[in-house]
Design a protein around this nucleic acid. Structure first.
Length: 204
DNA sequence: GCCAGGATCGTCT
DNA sequence: GACGATCCTGGCG
């Protein structure tokens, strides 16, 4: 089976985010098909690299094809794929997977049985795959990671775009990419999809 | 089924 | 000392 190489990631972050949907991501014995991603680049106020280079976002400025893993809300590790040539800071957030291998192990790690609850969110899938901060900066094209392009059955599946989720800055940018009709995409609260600045509009 | 609130900690001001 | 690219639980209808 073919694997993606570094050249796949050395392109516009939007192309990479779009093309990653449908690919299979494996970490150790677990694997899943990517069904939801988001693009972040350095011109984007929501991107960690927007404020410039720091110790935390160092990996974003490095060579493409690496994993950028960071801790969100002090609890969840979030997995990104670094894109664009070295020196250009951009990354694709992996938001959801459709589990395809190592499902029993995922269930143990997640403490859940339902397939839809294993990887349907950026914090969930890192727990299911066993991705932690220790993998920050690791090469996505080498063990324990492996990335494979979509198989034949994927041909014809639409990738739809929409606003990003769970952020307060530049949330209106349509830089989220989803596999159309997938049951495994994350399910954000409707409020997250409303326009910014109106998040707590009084009801009644 | 929907919503509000809490958990928890690395990073930056 | 404040703030998240989140998730889960409990209370209510």
């Amino acid at each position: 089976m073919r694997e993606l190489g570094h050249e796949f990631f050395a392109r516009s972050v939007h192309e990479v985010a779009h093309d990653l949907v449908g690919c299979t991501l494996a970490v150790g014995e677990t694997a899943g098909k990517i069904v939801e991603t988001e693009a972040y680049d350095a011109t984007d106020p929501a991107c960690h690299a927007y404020i410039g280079r720091t110790a935390r976002n160092e990996v974003l400025f490095g060579p493409p094809g690496r994993a950028y893993v960071y801790l969100s809300y002090g609890i969840h590790s979030l997995l990104n794929a670094v894109a664009e040539p070295e020196g250009s800071a951009a990354a694709v957030l992996i938001r959801a997977l459709e589990p395809t291998a190592g499902i029993e192990l995922m269930r143990e790690r997640r403490g859940r049985d339902e397939l839809e609850e294993l990887c349907s969110g950026p914090g969930k899938l890192t727990e299911a795959l066993g991705v932690g901060l220790d993998l920050n900066g690791a090469d996505l094209t080498a063990p324990p990671f492996a990335l494979h392009p979509p198989g034949r059955s994927w041909n014809g599946t639409a990738v739809i775009t929409g606003p990003r989720i769970g952020i307060t800055k530049a949330a209106e940018l349509p830089w989220r990419y989803c596999a159309a009709g997938s049951r495994f995409v994350s399910r954000p609260r409707p409020v997250s999809l409303q326009r910014p600045g109106r998040r707590r509009e009084a009801r009644v």
